[in-house]
Simulated assay, not measured.
Amino acid sequence: MNRIDKLFSEKKQNVLNVYCTAGYPKLDSTLQVLNALQQHGADLVEIGMPYSDPLADGPVIQHSGSVAIENGMTMQVLFNQLKDVRKNGFDTPLILMGYMNPVLQFGIENFCAAAESVGVDGIILPDLPMYEYETIYKQLFEKHNLKFIFLVTPETSEERIRKIDTLSSGFIYAVSSSSTTGNNKAIGNQEAYFNRLQQMDLKNPILVGFGIKDKATFQAACKHTNGAIIGSAYIQALNAASNVDLVTKDFLNKVLQ
């Protein structure tokens, strides 16, 4: 069973997915961050693959990506870093999040094969159109046992959400507002949107992202969904980290306890 499926079969509520940027704050930080997140309570880990034009990312994650690129992070470096991660006791579901341009440059078949070989469970590519996924790439992701996760927003029509639900696997990423990551819009104001998704009785679990930063916003997002995704707030915490493990422990404790 795919690790994402296993997670949601065992845990229906308060699922915490934490986003980190590969190669940040230092090139060799990736595995330290993954292990700290697993040890201190993350249910899922989403690794951002740095890209020079990240459309959905706010300034904090954009900056972390720029630093990672300057550090020397590339897709091949990331796969090299991850090649033994599953052999060394990391069993948390792992998602790669990025954009189509670098994936196409790497070669999408090579990308999927490499992701499967290092134990990646799911992929998020916000700029891959649903039609192209369905008609060109769906079988390729399925061949390599990679869940493909689509995003929905408060403006997404019910018809499109239901179509996404038929195509998605793993979970649906519910963007809390039509903005970039790290926004300060109040999650509590989106309760009607989250409730609408809940009432649709979709087959996929729902995780809320964008604007989740602490215990209050995490709990608000979880009230009508299966869990939430924290990104920018954790990246900011890492920015000043002299000890990745201690900073991660402190950050997650404040969210979960």
Results as ranks from 00 to 15, higher is better:
T166G: 12
C20V: 11
M100I: 12
Q32T: 13
V85M: 12
M130P: 00
T74V: 06
N226D: 13
L128H: 03
A56Y: 02
P25Q: 09
P54S: 08
K147I: 07
S177M: 12
D84P: 02
D127A: 03
Q199E: 12
M49E: 03
M1P: 08
P25H: 09
R3Q: 11
A56M: 09
P25S: 06
K185T: 12
S157F: 11
L197G: 04
K87T: 09
T74H: 06
R196G: 10
S117L: 05
A113N: 10
P93C: 05
Q257M: 12
P154N: 04
L44F: 05
A221L: 00
M49R: 01
M97D: 00
V77R: 14
D28G: 07
S232H: 05
N2D: 07
T180K: 15
F90E: 06
T135H: 14
V33T: 12
A36S: 14
Y234N: 07
F90S: 01
T153H: 09
L37K: 07
T181K: 04
E116A: 10
L82R: 03
N101K: 08
Y137R: 04
N80F: 11
F111P: 04
E134P: 04
N204D: 09
L256I: 08
Q62F: 11
L96V: 05
I212Q: 00
I164Y: 09
M200G: 04
V45F: 01
I95S: 02
C112W: 08
N110G: 05
E155L: 13
S178C: 15
I124L: 09
N2M: 06
K215P: 02
T92N: 05
D127Y: 10
A237R: 13
N184M: 09
T225A: 04
